[in-house]
Amino acid sequence: MKVQTYPPKNSQIHAYLLFFFICNVQIGVGIFSFQRYIFHVSKHDAWISVLIACLCAHAVLWLIIRMLNKYESADIFGIQYDLFGKYIGTLFNCIYIIFYLLVSILIMRSYVLVIQVWMFPDMSSWLIVSLLAILIIYAGFGGVRVIIGMCLLGFVVILVTVIFCLVTLRYSIWTQLLPIMESNMKDILRGAFRMSFTLAGFEFIMLIYPYVRNKERAMYHSQFSLLTGNLIYLIIMILSVAYFSSSQLERSIWPTFNMLKILKFPFSERLEFIVISIWMLMVLTGILINAWAISRGFKRMWNWNQKLVLLTVILIASTVTVMMEGRKNIDKLGEWVGLGSSVLSFLYPFLLSLIALIVLKVRARKAGDRGGGAS
């Protein structure tokens, strides 16, 4: 496998489109329920946990792009192959592929659960999954540019959702945020650790980077995109703590949906139905990006046909989603994926970046010594 990869020009994108790509891959269905898990640990200091996790994400992203800049045009699959060799590098690449598959299943199953609970309780899982699968396959065959186009539309959905949530400002009780730092530092850091799964997604820059034309602008647009996503999560967390009582927020499974229920329009008294429907675009994009990452991995390592791999991945994810029943199984999968995200999105990219920078520096020094000796 070649370390460097050079996609054709008709598949390349401008760096500013990374803003929409990272926002979409970072913000998914987790935005409707993350508050409960963070508040359960950090209480009304949950927003501090979110802030700490956001700062860590910016630091890791900075290291990742520094690493990518050292390579001319490489992705995570090529970098691991270069640093760890054929066998260990391939093993690490397979771990990422399995993780992306589990994330796809979790996103799909979570959205099916939301539809069945909030909109159509009697609708069969296989029907919802079939509709999602058809749309994902159709869009996936369009390539990277179609995925980026869906991300651009998805950003509009994100903005609309956040604007709707701001309506709770008039009902918020800001004293519920006080006193600050009442929770001990251990609980705040535990909350930040739990938040890492929700913030995961920015590491996909390691896959899309070779497709960027003006790579010198990748750092700016990626960090700005991550900042936007982090601010959205922070705002929603603060609004949730100020709007709900402690008992309400701990009991609520989907706090964001409950916030939207206070909005009523002449044409619709159940705004959450509209939000759930338009968020299908976000779900499709999230699953599609993960499925594309898997197909890209097979293409890079074994030169398999990406469309065939994409089709196979969606069929596997759809089958597992239909077979998975019960809230406990979904929560269990969420726990495992959350732990994997903390490692593969934060800890491992951090270590990989440091290893790459050290190894490349040593190689450059050795090459310089050999060049000096030869002269």
Rank of each mutant, 00 (worst) to 15 (best):
I205G: 09
L207R: 12
Y209M: 04
P210G: 11
Y211N: 08
E216D: 08
E216S: 08
E216M: 03
H221L: 02
Q223V: 05
Q223T: 08
S225H: 03
S225E: 04
L226W: 08
N230Y: 04
N230T: 10
L231H: 00
I232Q: 01
Y233F: 14
Y233H: 04
L234D: 02
I235A: 02
M237K: 08
L239E: 12
S240C: 06
V241P: 11
Y243W: 15
F244G: 12
S247A: 08
S247C: 01
Q248F: 02
L249N: 01
E250F: 05
E250L: 15
R251N: 13
R251C: 06
S252Y: 01
W254S: 05
W254N: 06
W254C: 02
W254G: 03
T256V: 14
F257N: 06
M259Q: 15
K261G: 10
L263E: 03
P266S: 10
P266E: 09
P266A: 09
P266T: 09
S268Q: 14
R270G: 09
L271S: 07
F273P: 00
I274L: 15
I274R: 09
V275G: 06
I276V: 15
S277N: 07
I278L: 10
M280Y: 00
M282V: 12
V283R: 01
V283C: 06
V283W: 00
L284D: 07
L284R: 08
T285C: 09
T285F: 08
T285E: 04
I287Y: 13
I289A: 15
N290G: 13
N290M: 15
G297D: 04
F298V: 02
W304N: 10
Q306F: 12
Q306E: 15
K307D: 12
K307G: 12
L308E: 06
V309I: 13
V309E: 00
L310I: 05
L311A: 07
V313G: 03
V313I: 12
L315G: 02
I316H: 10
I316Y: 10
A317K: 08
A317E: 09
S318E: 07
S318W: 11
S318G: 10
V320H: 07
V322R: 00
M323H: 08
N329M: 11
N329D: 11
I330W: 00
I330V: 13
G334T: 10
G334F: 04
V337M: 10
